[in-house]
Design a protein around this nucleic acid. Structure first.
Lengths: 284, 284
DNA sequence: ACCCATTTGTAATTTAGCTACATTTAAATG
DNA sequence: CATTTAAATGTAGCTAAATTACAAATGGGT
């Protein structure tokens, strides 16, 4: 798929001259796509047809076609460097890497999320009398974010990042209660128990978590996404982002389902916030 | 940035023939990048130089360069339809659109963030005796997230999403205190006052906020990013994501600065969490 | 209706990329 | 170790694609 990866993978299969071409391209891909075949050949110290043959070996029609493919690999966030942060990285380097890997994670989440499940979850949320958001650790921020979002919809919402409070909340759950649980791994024992407890008390449970995890199995609906977690970091990064975007998706589905009159209400909430702000034109 | 959007936006500015070209391209962008200038001219029923002029009007060097830009726009899921959610959208449609616009927002943030400023902020954070994270509204979730992240570093951290608590915290600030403020607009009056108060009490203030905003001016260091907020939504979405990634960047810079022994400590924190999880192999 | 500015097309020029063939290099076999 | 043969690389010529310069046409404004 990715042309850069493809080149790197085939490095061994290339001939000596072709490898020279590969190295020149890998050294600075963005430069390469601006070069003509002649300049690139000169840079790699090979002949033009060698460059052309190199392109063909990568299943492209020729040099221009190869550049097109390469350009796509370089587009929008697709990192052309290994996206793991190295201890020698400059501020610019790790900043870019983290942004790029975050985008890649969202792309992966997007590709693996099931719109059908989103639809069911939105259904459930729109029919809820009351919505609670639970998250522990890194996911607690996501739960807070969800509370903030759904609070604007003028329905009873609550949010807990504490197991005991979650428990108490579950015990008081009713038929119309919907509980949304955020967990990257879906293996946090406490949360799995919470999910079970909630269902025993007839609440509906939506889990935003890993596929086929213990938590997913305990939920009424499991919104699952594949997020490549950068395990080198010892900190969950990408998963919270994906969960937050999932919240955005659910919130958006919610407003769409509620219709235009409801969106007017949202507008009023936003207007109400304006007073607390400095005017954009005024220079304080 | 995005070439497709650029074409659509400039449709009105184009001349009659140029618009013909634009329409042919928009009708099937993937096809266009495979065409030569001659075939594209024929398809649009214009002359070749007209196509060339069209390309130049979009700030490209010529037709081949334009194709490169177009190819990038088409890459990795970047939608070549407008990414605003419509009320008629299916679950799949709005899910994709939200993920895509989130990625685009991060890309924009990445391009406008200043690594030099990140570096300064990391410097400041590593020298802090104590770090506090403040955020109101949608940014409160970001502040919580930051607290969670920096808590793992085993330094005194706190987090407030309440103006009164922020005030009290500022009054108790000392030389070594670093306060990180999150605000998308940078115009929330309360937060600007907090920043001033903090500085009056000799705390160092890092603002993750909008460029040239009142808040940015009150801070010791302002980490600013351009994030195209989808104002149709009446809810901040993209900005929180960008802020969270900024937190990741700062946290990463922090660990890198602290060196390898420090990272060992992080590993231990992670190991400690394992006990509270279901084993991946065990099927409960 | 005429003039000027803008737009569009034609034809020529330039440049880039590709093909066919020659040369070199390396490998394999007697 | 020599010789043959296949693979790899380069050279030169050719084709097609893109650009430039200029001319024709269109359209607004006086």
């Amino acid at each position: 798929m990715n042309t850069i990866d493809k080149i790197q993978k085939n490095l061994a299969n290339f001939s000596k001259s072709e490898r020279k071409v590969a190295e020149v391209i890998l050294a600075d891909p963005p430069l390469s796509i601006q070069c003509s075949i002649a300049t690139l050949a000169k840079m790699a110290d090979v002949s033009e047809p060698t460059v052309n043959r190199f392109c063909r070996r990568l299943d492209t029609k020729g040099f221009p076609d190869f550049k097109l493919h390469l350009a796509q690999s370089l587009a929008n966030g697709t990192p052309y460097v290994s996206r793991h942060v190295e201890s020698s990285d400059s501020a610019e380097a790790y900043t870019n890497k983290i942004f790029e890997s975050s985008m890649a994670a969202l792309d992966s989440a997007k590709q693996t999320i099931d719109a059908q499940v989103i639809n069911q979850a939105v259904d459930m949320l729109t029919q809820a009398d009351q919505i609670s958001f639970f998250g522990l650790g890194a996911s607690s921020a996501v739960a807070h974010d969800a509370e903030n979002k759904f609070f604007r919809f003028n329905i009873p919402v609550s949010c807990f990042d504490d197991v005991l409070m979650m428990r108490m909340s579950c015990i008081n759950a009713r038929e119309g209660s919907v509980i949304v649980l955020f967990s990257h791994t879906g293996r946090t024992k406490a949360l799995v128990e919470i999910a079970r407890l909630a269902r025993e008390n007839h609440a509906q449970v939506i889990g935003v978590t890993a596929k086929d995890s213990p938590l997913a199995r305990e939920c009424t609906i499991a919104v699952t996404m594949d997020v490549p977690e950068d395990t080198d970091q010892y900190m969950p990064m990408a998963s919270r982002l994906a969960q937050m975007v999932a919240v955005d998706v659910l919130a958006t589905g919610f407003t769409l389902r509620r219709g235009p009159r409801f969106r007017e209400n949202l507008k009023r909430v936003k207007e109400a916030l304006k007073e607390s702000r400095f005017d954009k034109s005024a220079q304080p």
